[in-house]
């Protein structure tokens, strides 16, 4: 019994220590003087985590918008309120689905790749040799990836919303015959730029930071063996997903919970 409690305490200490390491890691790598060289490194990572994730995020956005419209229509039509379809699609996407689903896809597509890449660099001693050459790998390897993720995910989220709303339009207006004036009109009268679009973007920024942070930290902190890399990659996806969903609840409660 006492052994179990001691074990629990040890796990707690380890967790706290890991969180401390992660915090220090973030502070050391995110803060730095921007340079021309750094800009190009960032650009390259933007291409990797942003541009190459565009396809999967856009396609998912289109399908989710279409499904939302289809499901929403069958419910709303019972109340004779199918005019509210645009509002329903837009609000669910902007406030909730775009930030969360885009972040989950991002964790799977880009986050795991970042972990594996940095992990492999660690396993093949590239990070150590960079240190020995006198270049801080936190600045050179981690910082561009961190910043690229932080910028890319909100942009992907915007894309997800736009495509999703268009998908809803395709199904609702073109297929199910909702009047397109009321699709856009109802949407415009109910969506508030700051309250809905803005809060969705704030969520997305928070998720971007958390997912990228988890991904690069797991890559940097892993045990440099093939088993260690595969475990860390899995951990990146699991931890990011849990963090995104958990934080989403907290943020929703703060942003929309007290909405009068």
């Amino acid at each position: 019994m006492i052994r179990h409690i001691a074990g629990l305490g040890r796990r707690g200490c380890e967790l706290l220590e890991a969180m401390g390491r992660a915090g220090l890691f973030l502070a050391q790598s995110a803060v730095g003087v921007p340079s021309r060289e750094g800009f190009y490194l960032w650009l390259r990572q933007m291409h990797f985590v942003g541009v190459l994730s565009l396809a999967i995020v856009m396609v998912s956005g289109l399908f989710i918008g279409m499904v939302l419209a289809l499901q929403g229509y069958t419910i709303l039509v019972d109340f004779g309120a199918e005019q509210a379809l645009g509002q329903m699609v837009a609000l669910s996407l902007l406030r909730e689905l775009s930030p969360v689903v885009a972040a989950l896809l991002f964790a799977g597509r880009a986050g795991s790749a970042l972990t594996a890449e940095i992990g492999l660099m660690k396993a093949t001693e590239q990070l150590s040799s960079m240190e020995m050459i006198g270049v801080d790998p936190l600045r050179r390897v981690v910082a561009p990836r961190l910043w690229a993720g932080f910028v890319a995910l909100p942009l992907l989220t915007v894309g997800f919303s736009v495509v999703g709303i268009y998908g809803g339009y395709l199904v609702g207006v073109e297929w199910l015959g909702v009047f397109d004036g009321s699709y856009w009109g109802n949407m415009q009268s109910s969506v508030d730029f700051i309250g809905d679009v803005g809060n969705g973007m704030v969520k997305s920024l928070v998720f971007a930071l958390v997912v990228t942070w988890i991904a690069v930290f797991q890559g940097y902190d892993l045990i440099p063996t093939s088993e260690g890399i595969s475990r860390a990659t899995t951990r990146t996806v699991v931890y990011s997903s849990l963090a995104v969903l958990g934080l989403d609840f907290v943020l929703t409660a703060v942003m929309f919970g007290g909405l009068s």
Partner: peptide, 19 residues
């Protein structure tokens, strides 16, 4: 320390070239 390391070179077991 990083400045001191400029005066050192290290050859890693795996070579550790940037891939």
């Amino acid at each position: 320390l990083f400045r001191l390391r400029r005066r050192m070179g290290m050859l890693f077991q795996s070579g550790a070239l940037f891939s």
